[in-house]
């Protein structure tokens, strides 16, 4: 519908609809899409999205998830590159530690926990010992929801306690598991990294458990406790990394899951669309008001723009949905 303003109005201003996007000269007001009502509406829609993302997994497990492209050879390479930078020798991939890591990851999906020690009391070292790896030193790093191998190793490196494991001279061997499954309703990828050094028969074992309140301690080796029952686990897992494949560089990644909505892509798109839209309107407001000398009794548009732009830039540069433990 077309409405006409007084004769002095020309150009795009003769279309009332345009005042949804530009300030009004006569009313001395912001664009309608920057009004209080509009901002309340955007906030309301964002709350709806937040609630949906938060609670949908409880009603429809596996619908939302985190897409990832992580593989063992990259994890091994990035870890050993970090070690080389500080003059440490590279760690070797060890089959027993791979198996222990794989069983730990499966246990987390099966029992439903995100911790070093399971709710049933199973410790990382139980998995290591159960695989017949008799250690003098052992350590474990965990990661979930990351999109690639480099981010995983970087996140461990950025955390002082995890970095201690990555750069420890006490280890000779390393094992990885990259397993897909549903945890807390989200389709996700868990990465388990196990470290170890085999012990000589007369030595005591030490573990480096990366978790707050669990400092490295010297503990005597005990017989491994009975692990949780080995029932069928409903996880879509990567095949166990085979040492034979290491030379050819074909270590498997976790299977790429299809059929779920990637949380990372959805949340970033929402942020860009809503943030970008309001940012653009604020930019137009500044430009148009200056051009036509419109003085409005409103808040400081440039301050709004600066605050919003910094927030969006921070989100783009500093939001990594993955977490380490």
């Amino acid at each position: 519908m077309r409405a006409y303003l007084p004769d002095s109005t020309s150009g795009i201003e003769k279309y009332q609809f345009i005042y949804h996007f530009i300030p009004h000269k006569e009313h001395k007001s912001r664009a309608r899409l920057l009004s209080h009502g509009a901002l309340i509406s955007y906030s309301f829609v964002l709350v709806i999205f937040a609630v949906l993302i938060r609670f949908l997994p409880a009603f429809a497990p596996g619908v939302l998830g985190y897409a990832s492209d992580i593989n063992v050879s990259d994890l091994l390479r990035y870890t050993n590159e970090r070690r080389a930078k500080v003059g440490l020798r590279p760690l070797s991939l060890n089959k027993e530690l791979n198996d222990a890591a794989y069983k730990k990851a499966n246990d987390m999906f099966k029992v439903g926990y995100w911790a070093h020690v399971s709710p049933l009391g199973t410790k990382p070292w139980d998995f290591v010992l159960n695989e017949g790896y008799d250690y003098i030193y052992a350590g474990e790093n965990l990661a979930k929801n990351f999109s690639n191998s480099e981010d995983v190793v970087q996140a461990w490196y950025d955390s002082p306690t995890h970095r201690e494991n990555l750069l420890s001279p006490n280890y000779d061997d390393m094992g990885f598991a990259i397993v897909n499954g549903v945890l807390d309703g989200y389709e996700t990828t868990i990465v388990v990294q196990m470290f170890g050094r085999l012990r000589a028969p007369t030595q005591l074992a030490a573990v480096n458990e990366i978790s707050e309140g669990f400092p490295s301690t010297q503990v005597p080796i005990t017989e491994p406790e009975e692990a949780v029952p080995k029932e069928a686990v409903e996880v879509k897992s990567a095949p166990e990394p085979a040492l034979a494949n290491l030379q050819s560089g074909t270590l498997p990644a976790a299977e790429k899951e299809k059929g779920f909505v990637d949380v990372r892509a959805v949340t970033q798109s929402i942020t860009i669309v809503f943030g970008g839209f309001v940012t653009a309107l604020l930019g137009v407001d500044i430009w148009y008001s200056k051009k036509h000398g419109i003085f409005k009794l409103t808040g400081h548009t440039l301050a709004h723009l600066a605050f919003l732009l910094v927030a969006i830039a921070s989100v783009m540069l500093s939001v990594f949905p993955g977490s380490v433990l």
């Binding site: 955007y42 906030s43 964002l46 937040a50 949380v263 927030a311 949905p321």
Partner: peptide, 11 residues
């Protein structure tokens, strides 16, 4: 609005 926008991005 800005707080909610960041909250959404953080998932």
């Amino acid at each position: 609005f800005t707080f909610l926008l960041v909250l959404i991005a953080l998932g």
